[in-house]
Amino acid sequence: ALRLACRHPRRVAALVLVRPAWTFSPAPQNMRPITEAAELILEHGADKGRTIFARSDTATRLYREAPDNLASLLGYFDRPDAKGFAQVLADIASDGPGVCDSDVAALDIPALVVGNPMDAVHPLSSAYTLAAAMPHAVFAEITPKARNSARHFIELHEQISSFLQSNSNARSLIPS
C-alpha cells in the first residue's frame, strides 16, 4: 500500500497502514522469526521443524514478549502446504516496501498508521517511524491482540472508521 501511494499518489486518496512490519529497508530484524520458521520447514519439514522452532531461543522470547506472534508462527508449521508456503514466507521476510523516507515524506494524502505493543514482527517502532515520516499521518496505538483480542479488533475498527469518516471530504476516496 505504501509503495502504491508513493509511486502513484494521484490514485490514492488516503492510506491506512495497520501494524506495519517494514519501514524503509528490506529484511528488517523483526522479520527474522519468519525467516527462521521458513528455513526450518524447508530444511527439516513441518513436523521436525516445528519441534526445533518450539525449543528455540526465538520461541522462548516470543512466548514472553509477543505470544500472538508465536502462535501465528507455530501455525505455519501446521499448514497442509507448509513446504510451499515456507518459500512464500522466506520471500516476504526478505522483501521490503521499496520506498525510501523521502518518498514517504512527499506524500500529500491523509494517512492512518496503527500499531500496538507486544508485537515483535510488527513492532510499534515501525508504526511510529512511518507515522512520523508522513506529513499528514495520524498515529493510533491500540490494545495488543495478545492482551485482549476482542478489544484489539474493536479499537482497530473504531480507528479506521473514524479516519475514513473524517477524511472522506478531504478528497474523494474513489480513485479517478
Rank of each mutant, 00 (worst) to 15 (best):
V121S: 03
T58I: 02
R55T: 03
A137E: 10
G84V: 02
G115I: 04
E141S: 09
G84P: 09
R79C: 00
A137N: 12
P175V: 00
L89T: 07
H157E: 14
D119I: 01
H152G: 06
G115M: 06
N148K: 06
S94C: 04
G75H: 14
S94I: 00
V113W: 01
V113Y: 00
A111S: 13
R55F: 01
L89D: 02
A150T: 06
P97I: 00
A105K: 12
L74N: 15
Y128E: 13
L74M: 14
L124N: 02
C100H: 12
H122P: 01
P67W: 08
M118F: 02
A82N: 12
A90D: 15
S161N: 15
D81N: 15
D57V: 00
Q87M: 02
N169S: 11
A105T: 08
V88C: 06
V138H: 14
D101C: 01
A86Q: 10
L112W: 07
Y63P: 01
D47V: 00
K83Q: 12
A146W: 07
E141M: 04
D81C: 04
T60N: 09
S149A: 09
V99E: 06
I92H: 13
A82I: 03
G45I: 01
H136D: 10
P97T: 04
R50F: 06
L164A: 08
E43L: 00
A93G: 11
L173W: 10
A105G: 10
L70K: 12
I109R: 15
S126G: 02
P175A: 07
F53L: 05
F85A: 15
N148D: 15
I174W: 10
N169G: 07
D78C: 00
A140P: 03
M118N: 08
I160S: 05
L89A: 09
I52G: 12
G96D: 14
D108A: 10
T51H: 12
S126M: 05
S56W: 07
G49K: 11
A132S: 13
E65T: 05
S126P: 00
R147K: 09
S168K: 14
S102E: 14
A127P: 01
Y76F: 07
F77A: 08
D81Y: 12
A170M: 03
A150M: 05
E158L: 05
P117H: 11
A105N: 10
D91M: 05
A93R: 09
Y63N: 14
